[in-house]
């Protein structure tokens, strides 16, 4: 019907397509303006104001950069937590990427019970409920589990003295050994964070045509060469997607100390103004961090045509 009307009005095919394009994305335009752009701009305004809740609404008093300087210089935890969280993600990013690639390769092979294994590996996506996170913080069972692990001297999974001594005696740099130990101890967190990256890598592996490997086989390529010359270049778009996903996820995650700190200060310490300023500072740093990483990776990305 709409089409007939447009034809009657003598509108060219190209313009018709334009109108329909806008018609299809119109829900997003509406939602974007009302539920994203408006709150987004408001949050900038909040971060430079003091907010008073009144009966019929709220009043804003302009205070300039006061909230920002409070977050940066007066708040006891903010700067410390920001630095820690960047350190954590920089350390964990390579581990999650390598781990999820490795698991994706495993799950891509044919073996008995593959469907079950895949289903279990994606389970963390399903089970990541916010309320469980909050309840675990005060939960006796969880505390008991960490306490019993701490009895061994080191907290976490890697408590075997033999392995620890072995690692230290290998005369590797101490920093490296500590890195490995922390990584192993954080295995559950890493597995949970890797669920969606595994999915993305898996779908990437599926999309590589088998014929390329056959060609490589005929040319006598080894497994190592096949990985670097075929798999890795063709997976590079997924690598970029995963890096972005992991960074965004870790910065918006509930386990993130800053996010929970900002939520606390929303209701307590500084109020809306300071918490908006904090989250803006944090968000800008994240964007810069992302931009640098995307720039480095996308230089080496190869898209299959």
């Amino acid at each position: 019907m709409i089409l007939r009307l447009l034809r009657k009005l003598n509108i060219s095919y190209k313009s018709q397509r334009e109108i329909f394009g806008y018609f299809f994305i119109s829900p997003f335009i509406l939602g974007f303006l009302m539920f994203f752009l408006y709150p987004f701009v408001m949050s900038i305004i909040f971060s430079i104001s003091e907010i008073e809740l009144t009966t019929g609404g709220f009043n804003l008093n302009f205070v300039g950069t006061e909230n920002y300087s409070y977050a940066l210089f007066s708040d006891p935890d903010f700067t410390y937590e920001v630095v820690t969280s960047f350190g954590t993600i920089a350390a964990e990013l390579p581990i999650i990427i390598i781990f999820s690639y490795f698991v994706a390769v495993l799950l891509n092979q044919k073996f008995k019970g593959r469907t079950t294994a895949r289903a279990i590996f994606f389970l963390p996506v399903i089970l990541s409920a916010g309320v469980i996170h909050y309840m675990d913080q005060g939960d006796f069972l969880q505390q008991a589990m960490t306490a019993s692990a701490q009895l061994g001297g080191v907290d976490g999974i890697l408590t075997s003295e033999v392995i620890l001594n072995l690692l230290y005696q290998m005369e590797l740099p101490d920093n490296f050994v500590e890195y490995i130990i922390t990584a192993v101890n954080r295995t559950p967190e890493i597995i949970n964070a890797a669920a969606i990256p595994i999915l993305i890598f898996l779908s990437g592996l599926q999309s590589i045509p088998q014929s390329l490997y056959e060609v490589a086989d005929i040319d006598g390529a080894t497994g190592w060469e096949k990985f670097w010359k075929v798999t890795f270049p063709l997976l590079s778009p997924m690598l970029l997607a995963n890096v972005i996903y992991i960074i965004v996820d870790s910065f918006t995650n509930l386990n993130n100390e800053i996010i929970s700190m900002i939520q606390e200060s929303l209701l307590g310490r500084g109020g809306f103004g300071v918490s908006s300023a904090m989250i803006w500072l944090y968000f800008l740093l994240v964007i810069i961090f992302l931009a640098i990483i995307i720039k480095i990776i996308s230089r080496n990305i190869i898209y299959m045509e």
Partner: peptide, 21 residues
């Protein structure tokens, strides 16, 4: 690009303004 942007912005940024909204 704006669609992608909405995904990258942490929901906490627009949480309070959206509440007041």
């Amino acid at each position: 690009a704006l669609v992608i942007f909405t995904f990258i912005v942490p929901p906490q940024i627009i949480l309070v303004p959206n509440y007041l909204n």
